[in-house]
Simulated scan of single mutants.
Amino acid sequence: MIRFFLRLMAIWLAAAGLVMAVIDAAKSIAESRLVLTPFAETWANWAAASLDAAHHALADKAPWLWVFLDKAVLSAPTFAVLLVVAGLLFWLGRPRRRFTFAHERDL
């Protein structure tokens, strides 16, 4: 059940990442220059209160983690962050390989 939920979330995040890539492509064509929406901007547009809450929670308890997130994740393009998280969830939700002993494979 957990694997199913992980794969379902991965599909939704991959779809959202592709939608954000199309939005960025449309903006880039309209402005005749490359436009990439940072993840922080998207998060602030959708849920500014949770972004502020995450900032205060992490900046107080683990400032080094907030610096990493701010530099690496929040400044990255939204479509890239969503697709990387989707790939991670796909990997975590992959079907388990059946374990077989070496002598069973020869039979």
Rank of each mutant, 00 (worst) to 15 (best):
M1Q: 11
F4I: 06
L6W: 04
R7G: 04
L8V: 04
L8N: 09
M9S: 15
A10Q: 02
W12K: 11
L13E: 06
A14E: 14
A15G: 07
A16K: 03
V19N: 04
V19W: 07
A21W: 09
V22Q: 08
V22H: 01
A25F: 07
K27M: 15
S28W: 00
I29V: 05
I29D: 09
S32P: 00
R33G: 02
L36D: 02
T37V: 06
T37K: 08
P38E: 00
F39W: 05
F39P: 00
A40K: 11
T42A: 14
A44M: 12
N45E: 12
W46I: 13
S50V: 15
L51C: 03
L51E: 08
H55P: 02
H56Y: 14
A57V: 05
K61S: 15
A62G: 01
A62R: 13
W64H: 05
L65A: 06
W66H: 08
W66L: 15
V67C: 02
L69N: 11
D70G: 01
A72C: 12
A72D: 14
A72E: 14
V73P: 02
S75P: 01
S75Y: 00
A76T: 07
A76L: 04
F79Y: 04
F79L: 00
A80C: 03
V84E: 06
V84L: 11
V85I: 15
A86F: 05
L88M: 12
L89D: 07
L89A: 05
F90Y: 13
F90L: 07
F90W: 08
L92S: 10
G93K: 06
R94K: 08
R97G: 01
R98L: 10
F99L: 11
F99Q: 09
T100F: 15
F101S: 11
H103Y: 08
D106Y: 08
D106W: 01
